[in-house]
Design a protein around this nucleic acid. Structure first.
Lengths: 220, 220
DNA sequence: TGTAAACTGCCACTGAATGACATTATTGCT
DNA sequence: AGCAATAATGTCATTCAGTGGCAGTTTACA
């Protein structure tokens, strides 16, 4: 349990991080045990011994707490991309930053993330929420691209398309990864590597997808 | 008021279409007058003189009724694409089918659609819902591509990428169209043409976006 | 005409989500 | 160390989207 926040933080901040973490963990555990739709927020907050009002001070919705692991990844991605200068193909930079974010997350996150994606895959409301969050991330990336290039995405639609391409590649790669994991007994070690591979594969397939014809389709 | 459904339909079907239409129209009118979040479903159903229980037999959510015009477009797109044989670049077929769907919708739909997009643009919950619907449409397109090509999208990630590219282009083009319309006094005639142009522009920019470098960015 | 199926409405209820305001805990300064 | 200010939390009432169960009404068909 990595509840050892930065000792330099004031007590208030430390307590907030603890509560946030406790809510995320309790929620994920309960949702995994009995299903997202079968657990009420009252049950979650009872576990952590906080009020529901407090819950909503930390999370904007029930779906938010359930998909916290993904949010952490998006935050890392956007922060990493912000720190990366643009040189060479923009899409390659977007790809590199995403891979870097994925590889930089710790092992505890990985366990939570894998469990979260499984939960998302079998819960329609969470699938929708996950998609919404990915699109919001696109928007943040586009804003950064606009800023880095000093160009408005209305003037050049390619800037907005880059957001679609990057996060779209993630959606495709992650989707295929989940579907593959569902058929695999290897639920632990190596799953992240496989996810990275699938995402990279999707990025790399973009140029070909753009010009693909029916004859180019591989038989199954 | 195009409430003249097919005379060949049984009375039951005709009444259902009428109720569906009435709910869509009342909801959109009220939402536009006072804002999506300010109108309750009780107000909407009172206008149409049906029960809320009936409302939920027609629509799965409040957001659903608000974005009906978009749903109609997606349905037309998917149906049109289903009827279109794949030849030449797949993306070009996807593009053609979308343009064809857009141009095939009638003038009454166009008015509703423009109003709906304006409402979506200023309502966060509807923006999210609209995005979710577009992603669901992607899924339907991918399923059709899989079927047409007799290939599983897990075996070839490009199939899923094609869905992202097509509907992603829509999102980019439509987004820029809405932002442009917001600054334009021409709210009526010609708006659809402009939307088509922006969407086509986005499709056409995909090959360039994939390889774009910072030096290739246009100044504003 | 009568019956079955489809459709609608009533009603109670649930649970996510919110606003107002009181209470408690922490911080920073003297 | 004490205190005032600030931040965080909890209580409580409420709203409203959404659902299930079941009775009543309408339509279709033999």
């Amino acid at each position: 349990m990595p509840a050892n926040p930065d000792r330099d933080l004031p007590l208030r901040e430390r307590k907030k991080l603890r509560t946030h973490r406790a809510l995320v963990d309790a929620a994920l555990r309960l949702f995994l045990e009995r299903g997202f739709d079968e657990i009420t927020l009252d049950e979650v907050v009872d576990e952590v011994e906080v009020s529901k009002r407090t819950f909503f001070r930390y999370f904007s919705s029930k779906e938010d707490v359930a998909t916290a692991a993904e949010t952490e990844l998006w935050d890392a991605y956007v922060a990493g991309f912000a720190r990366t200068p643009l040189d060479g193909p923009v899409l390659a930079t977007l790809r590199r930053a995403l891979v870097s974010a994925l590889e930089g997350m710790d092992a505890e996150w990985e366990r939570r993330f894998i469990a979260t994606r499984g939960l998302i895959a079998r819960t329609p409301a969470l699938r929708d929420h996950s998609n919404v969050c990915s699109l919001r991330t696109q928007e943040r990336l586009v804003e950064q691209i606009e800023s880095k290039l000093a160009v408005d995405s209305r003037a050049d639609v390619r800037l907005r398309l880059l957001g679609e391409l990057a996060v779209g590649a993630w959606r495709c790669g992650a989707k295929n990864w989940v579907r593959q994991e569902r058929h695999s007994e290897r639920k632990g070690h190596g799953a992240r590597d496989t996810l990275v591979s699938r995402v990279v594969e999707a990025f790399d397939a973009l140029p070909s997808a753009v010009v693909m014809t029916p004859e180019a389709a591989e038989g199954d």
